[in-house]
């Protein structure tokens, strides 16, 4: 099932100004996996993603993407290496149409025919986007925006897709839909690193999981093992 490590974080420290948020975290994501990072509010999940993407600079430790160190690279160069993030809160370009948002996702690519195929694929995954392709992205509903954000990331054909709380603020039926799509993407070969508060759903989807508490990794195991772990159950699954 799992291949070579595609993304590795090795005792990464990071934070904002005087505040240290990540205190030496080590994470490994293998090719073809869905790995989830769980934790409460303020544990440092989003900071972890932003440090990987280069938006927040790692203070020490190393981050490798396909064996290449990326922690000193600017954001756009990291994206060029095949990593893409669906940011928390969607962050669509609200005054641009759905189609333009998707085109921005394919910004680094120069293969119009393949881009066209991927566009069709996105419309097939999310038929509502095809209907609304001319509409301003800011006028979409929350669920549609989340679909648009995921589709935009897919347009980059990333080797690894980072998702920050895709279920946030969505109705349960939409959450299920989004998670089904994530599974399908993974079946199609995209490696997924999923940050979630909805631990139950995330662990049912993922192969492996990490649990984070105040900037450190407290658990690291297969999803089944975490689901049946007493302390994880008490802390995150609400049993």
């Amino acid at each position: 099932m799992t291949g070579h490590p595609i993304l590795t974080l090795e005792s990464v420290h990071s934070g904002y100004g005087p505040l240290e948020v990540l205190r030496g975290i080590t994470i490994e994501v293998h090719e073809g996996e869905i790995v989830t990072l769980l934790g409460a509010n303020g544990a440092g999940k989003s900071t972890t993603l932003n440090t990987i993407c280069g938006i927040v600079r790692a203070r020490s430790g190393s981050i490798c993407l396909s064996g290449e160190e990326i922690e000193q690279m600017p954001v756009h160069a990291i994206v060029e290496k095949g990593l893409c993030q669906v940011p928390e809160g969607r962050k669509l370009f609200g005054d641009m149409s759905v189609l333009e948002n998707l085109e921005m996702g394919a910004y680094l690519r120069n293969d119009p025919s393949e881009i066209g195929k991927d566009l069709e694929h996105c419309y097939e995954l999310f038929p509502i986007l095809a209907e609304r392709r001319k509409q301003m992205a800011g006028s979409l509903s929350g669920g549609e925006q989340q679909m648009c954000a995921i589709a935009r990331a897919l347009m980059a054909r990333p080797k690894i897709l980072l998702l920050d709380e895709p279920s946030l603020g969505l109705a349960p039926i939409l959450v299920q839909q989004i998670f089904d799509i994530i599974r399908r993407l993974n079946d199609e070969g995209t490696t997924i690193f999923l940050v979630e508060q909805n631990a139950n759903a995330a662990l049912r989807l993922a192969h492996r999981g990490y649990v984070m508490e105040t900037g450190t990794i407290t658990h690291c195991d297969t999803a089944e093992a975490l689901l049946s772990d007493k302390s994880v159950q008490e802390g995150y699954l609400g049993y």
Binding site: V79, P87, K91, M96, E103, M104, A156
Partner: peptide
């Protein structure tokens, strides 16, 4: 054009534009 779209994207949100691979 592509660069024009990148300009508009940067005008809306530079950080997200950089996440699309745009050299802001």
């Amino acid at each position: 054009t592509k660069i024009g779209k990148a300009m508009r994207a940067c005008a809306i949100d530079k950080q997200t534009a950089s996440l699309m691979g745009v050299n802001v």
